[in-house]
Design a protein around this nucleic acid. Structure first.
Lengths: 243, 243
DNA sequence: ACCTTATGACAACACCGTTGACCTGTTAAG
DNA sequence: CTTAACAGGTCAACGGTGTTGTCATAAGGT
């Protein structure tokens, strides 16, 4: 049993399942994504995935060493779909804003998968392409290498983190989500000014704002700060804009 | 069996377990926190918790309807501990930085609880106190109500989102985490400059930076942008610093 | 001292990921 | 065209999980 998994390229004897399905890494990943979308993140288990595929659960271990491996593959597929239509224009602030909003939207479109995949490094093709692109945008903008990496890291993590956070919100059962807005409206909306002056003064805005994602605001603050930072770097080194 | 759980106030017949322990909500929550701290996030299961308490697992269902309930109670306790020692000094940037780092650290110390609680509004005492305090800091700094709420929202969500993201990282089994740094070192560290110029140029920094949380960097960028924003507001309205 | 009943214990259910042993159709070599 | 190797699908089992229906018993009020 020393090694159960075979690299996808070397795979050749593709024998169909008892139920007539020919397995493949792509089919498995695709089915996993579909399962997550349709029945929630908890619906993804090796056994259920096997059932959905028409194969014995243990067959999957011929393709992935363990569940973690499978999740990485799913995550990479998500990254690929998110980036497929992104085209940098040369305006780095606009490009990053666009990309950030895309990542966030992608996460919201696949809430369960995003929650599971946000914190992993896949080291797979799609991810590598993404890293290269974003670093390119930042370095062309004029950030020195160390700063480019710092900004890159914070940017990506922010997008992933907010994506996961907001995903988790939308993934809540309907009743729970309505209960939340109700908490804002009643509990916070009715605190007396004597005991809670600041909440009372802003209650109107709180109720209106708290059910909308704060990511766009956070992203704009982030980009503002990054631009300011770049300006200071340029001023200090006396460098002009490249190209 | 209509309702198994009894409100804590109504609890009266405190019979010890077979092993002589007298259960209580506080004891259970405390033990759960201890378990998480000592043996990692996935050491917390109903059965293990029961064993650690010296009680049958099913006894816990007299105190919490299900594991989620227990985790929320743990999270609430966490909020309390995080805020207990925070004292605003009057320097709003320093205060918010301090609070953000505290929230992040608290999340890291209790990954499972943080992940679960990040996207919920409890409307409970600790949370209300936190909202009032932060809004107070921002309004005293001079932000008008609408802006104070916007900044508040983004600030809190950023802290929670990064907390949950980084928590998920530390909650990973040891092997998986080492695999991640290995991916950065080998996969990304060895890409040729011809195909991936930007990654190759910054590989050194990538390897060093990516295993550290980017939250402090993101937080500083956030605060920088907020300060800039406040300055612009002041300039536009010609208002001076209050007090 | 007795009754009620809150609360702990037990046993069972339906899941989960993972693995070792087995079986069989595909494929490449002769 | 035959045949032998072995990739890859299947089966059964292990030890874990959360949860619940039922039972028994000791605590507390009377």
């Amino acid at each position: 049993m020393s090694e159960r998994v075979v690299p996808p390229t070397a795979r050749q004897r593709r024998r169909p399942t008892k139920q007539g399905v020919v397995l493949s890494e792509e089919l498995i990943v695709g089915t996993a994504l579909r399962l997550i979308e349709e029945h929630g993140a908890d619906a993804l288990s090796v056994r259920r995935l096997g059932r959905a595929l028409g194969a014995d659960p243990s067959s999957l271990y011929r393709y992935f060493r363990h569940t973690d491996d499978l999740m990485l593959a799913v995550a990479d597929e998500l990254i690929g779909r998110t980036l497929r239509t992104w085209r940098p224009t040369g305006d780095w602030v606009a490009d990053l804003r666009d990309l950030g909003l895309r990542m966030h939207a992608g996460a919201l479109a696949h809430p369960r998968a995003a929650t599971l995949a946000a914190h992993r490094v896949t080291g797979r093709a799609h991810e590598i392409r993404a890293v290269e692109s974003i670093l390119g945008v930042l370095r062309r903008a004029g950030f020195p290498d160390r700063e480019a990496v710092r900004i890159y890291h914070a940017f990506v993590d922010q997008a992933l983190a907010f994506g996961a956070l907001d995903s988790a919100g939308t993934a809540l059962p309907r009743a729970a989500r309505e209960a939340e807005t109700q908490v804002w409206r009643t509990t916070y909306g009715r605190l007396p000014a004597e005991t809670h002056p600041h909440i009372a003064a802003t209650a109107r805005h709180l109720v209106a704002t708290m059910r909308v994602s704060s990511y766009p605001a956070a992203l704009d603050l982030f980009l503002t700060a990054a631009r300011t930072h770049l300006g200071q770097l340029r001023a200090r080194t006396g460098a002009s804009r490249p190209h």
